[in-house]
Amino acid sequence: MGWKGSLAEVPLWFAGRLGPQPARSRNDAPRSILVLRPNDLGDLLTTTPIFEALRRRFPDARLVAGIGRWGRAIVENNPFVDEVLELDAPWHNKVVPDQSLGAALRFIRDCAQVRAARERGGFDVGIDVVGSHFGLLLMLRLGVRYRIGVRGYRGGWSGCHGHIRFSPMVHVSRAALAQAELLGAHDLPEARPQLYLTDFERAQAAHVWRSGAVAGRRPVRLLVGCAAGLPDKSWAPEALGEALGRVSRALAQAGGSDIVIVGGAAEKSCAQTVIEHSGAAAGIRSLAGQTPLRTTFALAEQADVVITNSSMLLHAAAAFRRPTVAVLGGTLGDARGHDSVWGYCAPYCSVGPENGKPYGRISGWPSIERVVQTILDKIAGHAVSAGPDRLSIGLN
């Protein structure tokens, strides 16, 4: 946060003192808690453990997820979320096109979503997970009486009653849990995304995966995300296609493979390029733009290995502890730095460029050979843990 952001903290400090204040004793359990996270899908996924932490601490409080309409699928069926409050805020996401200062202020002042939310009479507690000037103003506008934010990132902390300090080396899920700790939540779940599927959603995914078998062994299921939220974080589809083609050929003698590409409508052309460069024998299928987000989650749960860039799919796979290979490069030259904030413990692993550079500079990408070998190693490791009746893969 630069000097302009720091200067903005002065009026926000006054706004926080003049705004809604806690009307109940500090020892009283809150009746309602708003968790504000109207950001991208991966951001929201990393935040989901906070709802369980808050429920353990305040079993009778009404937990409200203040999220963009695009994120509803992530908290659907979550037993710890009582209500979804749609707030399509024009900041810190890639969905709302106009994210100017004027658009943000108009949203806070005039948006119908905000006006409707104000009619409920406010919230006892509000947590702005990302921590920003606009997030604070929105909490004030919504009548949040006790506010928690983040100091040292995007601002707004001076108008809050409590805050954590931003650190670029703390995992985003753990940082969200630290905000719950400010409310006395010390019985914490694992800092890992949470997704709750239905039996119907699982059945839909099972129908997508091929059920055929060779020599009594079913194909290895590989779920692939071919793009990231930012072009600089997306491995070239030509390289990804060649890598997947090599993996498919390596698995041909061991039951074969079922490789499925998922993504939004914007990834259709990217997925097609991947398929074109994989070779005709690879048999890769693309469901980009065709699969609801909840079905994508169920596909991830049933995949043997998930292959992705630094994207939402990485966090969805982590929710189910699926073996994952994240291909990192572009502006993510430091794989270890990335993983400390966005990665997870095994069976997740990442493959970064051989000669990484600091964040903010374009670096190279790992070689196709390294990515292919990492994927095959991950498949082999999963085959061992799954047992001989599940997978049997010989690598040459």
Rank of each mutant, 00 (worst) to 15 (best):
208 V>R: 02
90 P>R: 02
167 S>G: 08
98 D>T: 11
221 R>S: 08
153 Y>I: 07
217 R>Q: 10
228 A>I: 07
218 R>F: 13
81 V>G: 02
362 I>L: 15
127 I>W: 02
225 G>D: 07
338 H>M: 13
213 A>I: 04
58 F>K: 00
62 R>V: 09
94 K>I: 14
389 D>A: 09
157 W>H: 09
376 L>T: 06
393 I>F: 04
158 S>A: 15
382 H>E: 09
208 V>P: 01
178 A>I: 00
306 V>Y: 02
275 I>A: 11
3 W>A: 06
95 V>T: 10
335 A>F: 03
65 A>Q: 01
116 A>L: 14
158 S>N: 04
346 A>P: 06
107 F>W: 06
297 F>L: 08
221 R>V: 11
269 S>F: 13
283 G>T: 03
390 R>N: 07
27 N>S: 13
240 L>A: 11
346 A>Q: 10
393 I>Q: 01
23 A>C: 01
372 V>Y: 05
235 W>I: 15
318 A>I: 12
262 V>W: 07
30 P>G: 05
75 V>A: 09
125 V>N: 02
140 L>F: 01
177 L>R: 01
30 P>A: 05
388 P>D: 15
96 V>W: 04
392 S>M: 09
324 T>L: 03
146 Y>F: 15
227 A>H: 00
177 L>T: 05
133 H>V: 15
109 R>T: 03
15 A>C: 05
176 A>K: 05
125 V>H: 00
62 R>T: 09
37 R>Q: 13
197 L>T: 09
150 V>C: 14
303 A>D: 14
130 V>L: 11
359 Y>V: 08
281 A>S: 07
139 M>A: 06
305 V>D: 06
81 V>R: 01
9 E>K: 01
257 S>A: 15
127 I>A: 03
350 S>Y: 02
83 E>M: 08
13 W>P: 00
90 P>E: 04
147 R>F: 09
344 Y>L: 15
200 F>M: 12
188 L>H: 01
213 A>S: 10
92 H>F: 11
387 G>S: 06
136 L>E: 10
27 N>C: 07
31 R>W: 00
378 K>M: 10
146 Y>I: 15
9 E>H: 02
378 K>W: 03
310 S>Y: 03
334 D>Q: 08
152 G>Q: 13
127 I>E: 05
125 V>I: 14
74 I>Q: 01
6 S>F: 10
68 G>N: 02
271 A>N: 14
150 V>A: 11
147 R>Q: 12
162 G>P: 00
263 G>C: 13
29 A>H: 04
308 T>L: 06
280 A>M: 10
355 N>I: 03
36 L>A: 06
155 G>I: 12
193 P>F: 06
211 S>Q: 12
83 E>W: 03
24 R>P: 09
346 A>G: 01
15 A>P: 03
361 R>W: 05
311 S>A: 13
224 V>P: 05
33 I>L: 14
267 E>R: 09
341 V>C: 06
197 L>C: 09
